[in-house]
């Protein structure tokens, strides 16, 4: 079936199957930042934006994105590097496998919430699992990032 969408600002038309997930489609399109860590919609590794909203690409059929705008970390390289530098300065990226999905959600949060409290930050990001960092360094990075952007906690 035919799928037309805007992927990281580029209009794409592709043939996909009815049961192809957005995750599989994006990996096939070379968006290899998008990772899969579970089969049960629990880990948040596959987070991308669908019309600017963070979603689990493993749970969204590719065809549902028809006519929509999809953004992955490949399309947000400058912002990824900007926030990522704060994460790196804490050493909190650790293995990095959850970083793309996590950063997609941090960037979504920074657009959606103005001056979030610490509790709001933790709740917004609760769907992003990380087994390495214990989350503390991620929070330090977010605080510094938001403070630098004027959206301080």
């Amino acid at each position: 079936m035919q799928l037309t969408l805007t992927l990281n600002g580029v209009r794409c038309t592709d043939e996909v199957q009815a049961d192809t997930t957005l995750f599989t489609y994006l990996r096939e399109k070379g968006c290899l930042s998008v990772k899969c860590g579970c089969e049960t919609s629990n880990c948040g590794l596959c987070t991308v934006w669908l019309d600017e909203k963070p979603v689990l690409s493993c749970s969204v059929p590719a065809l549902r994105a028809d006519g929509k705008k999809v953004t992955t970390l490949e399309g947000l390289q400058d912002e990824a590097a900007e926030f990522g530098a704060y994460l790196a300065d804490e050493g909190a990226e650790q293995c990095g496998y959850c970083s793309p999905g996590f950063i997609m959600n941090v960037l979504a949060m920074s657009r959606e919430l103005t001056h979030p409290t610490e509790q709001e930050i933790q709740e917004y990001l609760a769907g992003n699992l990380c087994r390495c960092s214990g989350y503390q360094g991620q929070l330090r990075a977010i605080r510094k990032f938001l403070a630098a952007k004027g959206g301080c906690v």
């Binding site: 919609s41 629990n42 948040g44 987070t47 669908l50 909203k53 963070p54 979603v55 689990l56 749970s59 969204v60 959600n105 979504a108 949060m109 709740e123 917004y124 990001l125 609760a126 769907g127 992003n128």
Partner: peptide, 12 residues
């Protein structure tokens, strides 16, 4: 709703 998995899940 807020305890249901995470924001990304709840957006789906």
């Amino acid at each position: 709703t807020r305890h249901i998995v995470g924001v990304q899940f709840r957006n789906c």
